[in-house]
Design a protein around this nucleic acid. Structure first.
Length: 138
DNA sequence: GCCAACGTTGGC
DNA sequence: GCCAACGTTGGC
């Protein structure tokens, strides 16, 4: 099983929106690298839900509940999407600031490629962020 | 196939 | 709101 991190600006679509909807197509991705990662995703994979711009923090966990299929909002037919479902809200959000301050997370893909909205997370990184979410960060 | 122009993301 | 980083487009 693989771990991922997926970004959304909360005023467009937030983790609370996903808790309400129960299942949602992650559409609108127009980046080839992100699309490649979505094609690698399997049902049952877990992903962090990250709020970009506002909040700048990991707020929840979701699961991939449908593997990749063509994005109906893409007229060119080049891009795909996956469906996601909420698993749980983190006890405390983990801020970007806290992630940057943690040496164990220094090599995270999301730090190396800030603009990539979907990125893989190593199991060690996943566990570290879960651990951090047990306590309020800064 | 190169690269300049342009558009977007996302932290600050 | 600004702008750095960087991905994409299109002319050549």
């Amino acid at each position: 099983m693989a771990y991922w991190l997926m970004k959304s600006e909360p005023y467009k679509y937030s983790f609370d929106d996903l808790l309400r909807d129960r299942q949602e197509p992650w559409d609108g991705i127009r980046n080839y690298q992100a699309a490649i990662f979505m094609r690698e995703m399997k049902v049952g994979d877990l992903a962090f839900f990250y709020h970009s711009n506002e909040g700048k923090e990991v707020v929840g966990i979701m699961t991939i509940c449908r593997s990749h299929y063509p994005d109906p909002t893409d007229a060119t037919g080049k891009f795909c999407l996956v469906d996601v479902s909420p698993v749980e809200k983190l006890p405390h959000p983990v801020t970007l600031k806290a992630i940057k301050a943690n040496p164990n997370l220094a090599n995270m893909r999301m730090l190396r490629q800030a603009r990539l909205s979907i990125s893989p997370v190593l199991e060690s990184e996943w566990q570290e962020i879960l651990k951090m979410s047990q306590n309020p960060s800064s």
